[in-house]
């Protein structure tokens, strides 16, 4: 049995009276990779910030639990957080240009992070930094360490932030839109690198992206978020090949990559709700082609079977369809 690393249970995060995450639950085992997919305002980044204890001012965990290796993170003191961040949970941000301090060399910043977590001599710390830079396929690691962030390209800097994150030997790596700010060919290289390193170091990974392509390249599990809730979750192959929730179906059908194969683009009418929108029924109902009366009246519960979770009243219907297929 693989051990559970992270359990999020009925997590509700609010800004004042406005709920930003509602009743969010998921688990991540050691070495496992989970992708959170959603559009803006769906709460995917808010989830990452909750895990890191870095919620913006005025936003707080209202109820629920975040359990990392048996400890409830909600009870953590600042000192405990400081140990956990970096070594327990490390983060890769969307924009590498803003993730580094422009006034210090990359080497200095890596050294500071390593020194904060490892009782090592300066020489060993430097070797550690250089090792992980080489793992991130930055061959001239000596020169990289001496460089200031502005002297490196976006793709190289993202490699450095991956090296920095991994050099702390984290148990869970959180990557929030790790390639969104990069060019297409560089995006592809960085995804290949992350894939390789995840296999090599067996780090559990939580990947956050609006892009199904990114998530499906890196993760074995996928959860789809909408308006602060998980609407569908399961194994990547299940979610991609047999999406059950109408939102997942529509989102997959509207991916631009479908166009390369000459398919027409199906669109979802309307716009995703702003973060914190409160609805009586299913938040997706106003845009849903399958909607019926009940959808506007009650929030669909999460129905679980065969390792699939779907929050849609029509799940039994889809299950029946699947059987007849």
């Amino acid at each position: 049995m693989t051990q559970t690393l992270l359990t999020v249970e009925h997590l509700t995060v609010s800004a004042g009276q406005t709920p930003l995450l509602q009743n969010l639950s998921f688990t991540l085992k050691k070495k496992e990779t989970l992708g959170l997919v959603g559009e803006s305002g769906s709460g995917k980044s808010m989830t990452a910030w909750s895990l890191l204890g870095l919620l913006p001012p005025g936003v707080f965990v209202q109820s629920g639990k975040i359990i990392f290796k048996g400890d409830d993170l909600r009870r953590f003191s600042q000192a405990q957080w400081r140990v956990l961040r970096g070594k327990g949970l490390a983060m890769i941000f969307q924009n590498p240009q803003t993730a580094f301090n422009p006034l210090f060399t990359v080497g200095k910043q890596m050294d500071n992070a390593i020194a904060a977590h490892f009782d090592e001599t300066k020489k060993t710390r430097r070797e550690r930094a250089m090792f992980y830079l080489r793992q991130a396929e930055l061959s001239d690691s000596g020169r990289i360490l001496k460089s200031y962030p502005f002297q490196l390209s976006g793709g190289m800097l993202q490699r450095v932030s991956i090296a920095l994150a991994l050099s702390l030997e984290p148990e869970l790596l959180i990557a929030d839109e790790p390639t969104t700010a990069l060019d297409a060919t560089i995006q592809f290289q960085i995804l290949n690198l992350l894939q390789k390193l995840q296999k090599q170091f067996k780090t559990a990974m939580l990947v956050i992206s609006h892009h199904f392509g990114v998530v499906s390249k890196l993760c074995t599990q996928i959860a789809v978020m909408y308006n602060g809730r998980i609407v569908e979750a399961g194994l990547k192959s299940d979610v991609l090949n047999q999406p059950l929730h109408p939102y997942t179906r529509a989102l997959l059908a509207s991916r631009p990559v479908n166009l390369l194969s000459g398919q027409t683009l199906k669109t979802i009418p309307g716009t995703p709700p702003a973060a914190g929108t409160v609805t009586d029924g299913c938040a997706f109902a106003p845009r849903c082609s399958q909607r019926f009366e009940l959808c506007d009246k009650a929030v669909p519960p999460e129905l679980i079977s065969n390792n699939r979770r779907v929050a849609c009243f029509l799940k039994p219907k889809y299950d029946a369809e699947k059987i007849t297929d």
Binding site: E39, H210, A250, S254, R255, L265, I268, T271, P272
Partner: peptide, 15 residues
Amino acid sequence: PTSALDISIQAQILN
């Protein structure tokens, strides 16, 4: 024209 938009909205604008 679509790079700054959400995926479902990109599809709408493309159409």
